[in-house]
Design a protein around this nucleic acid. Structure first.
Length: 394
DNA sequence: TGTTGTCAAGCAGAG
DNA sequence: CTCTGCTTGACAACA
């Protein structure tokens, strides 16, 4: 689907998936799982090699991108996961920040096991930030899974045990002028009519705040959440959201909170009034706005940026694109692997989070498209052949 | 090593 | 009603 993939010369061995037509998986069936039609078929071509084949050197090719120009001067970032570091081989070398476990495992191994996962996640975050710096990326979203179950009603735990390590993350980010933000998940419902749901949302936000506070991150370290559900009455839900923000959230949590327009329930014009009245910034998401439009983009952006300005927070926005060939609303919600271009109305001085399956590769592609930063040959496309998106077909 | 089913949490929309 | 999608991934069990 993504032209990108077509250009890639994959590492020499491309394996065909066995395709065991066994049990029906409960997930979607619509992904024929082999999109390796990129010409990497020489895979099976060497059946008779007796000397144990030395590890094949992958062939890295940087495909051409269509060149474009921009006056954009902000940072581009990616969310949570670095595909190169996540897929390092051997498996013991992988670097990622979302180690987690099951509830059963907590019962089995105890909470200290879980807290150790958090330590490993934070250690790896240091590595990722170093990688980012080496590759001219200075903006990323921290995984909400950094500390598994930290906000859980029964198993939750404070993060102070990890304070020194978290402080190192903040110091490193500061050293590189690297912005770190968070995006608590879809279960974070500030406007639910159910008390327990709100309580869980507040715990989740407190956890994220605690993490950022212990890192010593400044006010640019925001936490982005959506409006959430409407429960059949949007006005009433908005009132509850407003009440939660104004009267329930502790000040340090509220200080980091920002709202984001979504593609189903709350458009930018739904959120702007409460954002403006509470001085909660609005993160504008171009993709969501395209699916759930309201006011003219330029108006949304200028009003949103005014809130950021008043709060002294560097503005940020989200960019993603729908999968190619998406027809229905549901299909269009899915993110594409890359972003082909920056939006028309993108202000120059702005941090832009790229939400794409290929993560940092999508950022690097935009770097190349617009000549924003040099891209190191070898970090591009190193593993695209095995990245999840590579197997996605439209 | 890879594959497969399942996993903390909430909601809305499609079929 | 069930399945899907959301920041979408990762664990666990087994081959």
């Amino acid at each position: 689907m993504d032209e990108d993939s077509d250009d890639i010369v994959a590492p020499k061995k491309v394996k065909r998936k066995p395709k065991p037509q066994g049990k029906k998986r409960k997930g979607s069936q619509l992904k024929p799982d082999d999109a390796a039609e990129d010409g990497g078929e020489e895979a099976t071509a060497s059946p008779r090699k007796k000397k144990r084949a030395p590890k094949l050197e992958p062939v890295y090719v940087i495909p051409d991108v269509e060149k474009r120009t921009t006056t954009f001067k902000g940072r581009l970032g990616y969310a949570c996961l670095n595909t190169i570091l996540r897929n390092k081989k051997p498996a013991t070398d992988v670097v990622f920040c979302s180690r987690t476990c099951r509830l059963d495992t907590i019962k089995e191994k105890g909470i200290d096991f879980v807290k150790d996962l958090g330590v490993k996640n934070v250690e790896d975050l240091l590595t990722i930030i170093e990688w980012n710096e080496a590759n001219n990326i200075r903006f990323m979203r921290i995984s909400s899974d950094m500390f598994p179950f930290a906000s859980h009603s029964l198993h939750g735990y404070p993060l102070d045990y990890c304070a020194p390590l978290l402080a190192r993350v903040g110091e490193l980010a500061l050293k590189y002028n690297h912005r770190l933000t968070t995006h608590p998940g879809q279960y974070t419902q500030l406007g639910s009519p159910k008390k327990e749901v709100i309580a869980a949302a507040v715990r989740e936000l407190k956890y994220h705040s605690e993490m950022l506070d212990l890192m010593g991150i400044d006010k640019d370290g925001v936490m982005i959440v959506h409006g959430g559900g409407v429960y059949g009455d949007k006005e009433a839900a908005l009132e509850r959201i407003k009440d939660t923000i104004a009267n329930v959230l502790p000040q340090n949590v509220r200080d980091r909170l920002v709202l984001e327009n979504d593609e189903i329930c709350y458009s930018a014009s739904d959120l702007l009034p409460i954002c403006e009245s509470l001085l909660i910034p609005l993160v504008f998401d171009y993709h969501h706005d395209a699916l759930n439009p309201s006011l003219p983009r330029t108006e949304i952006i200028s009003r949103a940026n005014e809130i950021f300005r008043k709060r002294g927070i560097k503005p940020k926005q989200h960019l993603s694109e729908a999968r190619e060939g998406a027809e229905t609303l549901m299909e269009k919600r899915k993110h594409s692997a890359r972003c082909k271009m920056l939006p028309e109305d993108l202000p120059d001085d702005m941090d832009l989070m790229i939400e794409a399956k290929d993560k940092e590769q999508a950022v690097l592609q935009l770097y190349r498209t617009y000549d924003l930063h040099p891209v190191i040959h070898g970090t591009v496309l190193v593993l695209v052949a095995s990245s999840p998106s590579f197997n996605l077909t439209p």
